[in-house]
């Protein structure tokens, strides 16, 4: 009987994820078809278990073709049995009832990259960066193909003096800016993100970041840009803001490197977006 409930709840859970759209808070929707098909497989398994249960007049009792596993958990001492139940019940309870956390500065801190790799970009070219701050898809393309792609992206922006990065352009746009910082100097750029104080002693500086998701949130990384505000702000880590300013570059002490910085002209607090992550769509 327990199995029926679990399968039913798994079916419901996957259905619920898709119906409510919450699935986007866990995975890149490009791969959603996989978990979508899981709904039907779970439903099928549930039906089979229900059918067996009622036909067999009980827990697989009268089944002629008994396999060893059926009564597996019932033969065990009660604590093992409850452990078994607990293991299956936990993700369901956690998935259905716990609030879905959004990856934020806590993860940026605990993953502990602290943007360190950036400092080596200038210093030594071969020791570039992990997937933090600066999106880098160069590895997904051959050297030439990548340059070509970047040129193409650049041409989209080069004539514009004012670039507003929408969420779906965020990763590519950031990457282009980091790739050709010189071409963007002085341009007006605006985008949304959450604040991350980082290690800067200057209260006017903070990072404005987004988490970018490749496959599921377990493989995401934080991307964004340093922003310098005209005056000190009371912004806390994870406050969502919209920033608009001109691109410049500066020597950033904690990284010991020159990095692009957005000199903020206008900004305002925003509500956390419905889709806090940006997704890799290429």
């Amino acid at each position: 009987m327990f199995r029926i409930y679990i399968l039913l709840l798994f079916t419901y859970f996957f259905f619920h994820l898709h119906a409510s759209g919450n699935i986007a808070k866990y995975i890149n929707m490009k791969y959603a078809y996989l978990s979508y098909s899981a709904i039907f497989i779970f439903a099928l398994l549930t039906i089979v278990q229900v059918y067996d249960y009622f036909k067999g007049g009980g827990e697989a009792a009268g089944e002629p073709c008994c396999d060893h596993d059926h009564s597996d958990e019932k033969d065990k001492p009660f604590y093992q049995r409850w452990f078994f139940y607990g293991v299956f019940a936990f993700p369901l309870a956690a998935g259905l009832f716990f609030p879905i956390a959004t990856l934020d500065s806590t993860i940026v801190k605990s993953k502990g990259f602290s943007f360190k790799p950036i400092e080596q970009i200038e210093a030594a070219d071969h020791y570039a960066q992990t997937q933090y701050l600066k999106p880098d898809t160069s590895v997904y393309y051959g050297k030439e193909g990548y340059d070509e792609l970047m040129e193409k992206e650049l041409s989209k922006y080069i004539s514009k003096e004012h670039i507003a990065l929408r969420d779906d352009q965020f990763l590519k746009g950031m990457e282009t800016i980091y790739h050709f910082p010189g071409d963007f100097l002085g341009k007006v750029i605006e985008f949304d993100g959450f604040a991350f104080r980082g290690e800067s002693p200057d209260q006017r500086q903070l990072f404005v970041l987004r988490f970018g998701v490749i496959h599921c949130v377990a493989d995401s990384g934080a991307f964004g840009m340093l922003a310098e505000f005209p005056e000190e702000t009371k912004l806390q880590d994870d406050d969502w803001i919209h920033v608009k300013g001109t691109l410049s570059s500066m020597y950033y002490q904690p990284f010991k490197a020159t990095i692009p910085v957005l000199r903020v002209k206008e900004w305002h607090a925003i509500d956390k977006p419905k889709e806090p992550y940006v997704y890799r769509g290429y």
Partner: peptide, 21 residues
């Protein structure tokens, strides 16, 4: 729960969603 536990939980569920199919 602490925020980091909830994030752990979210990563946990996302790995499951990815692996279960």
């Amino acid at each position: 729960f602490s925020q980091s536990f909830l994030q752990l939980n979210t990563i946990f569920i996302s790995i499951l969603i990815e692996a279960v199919p």
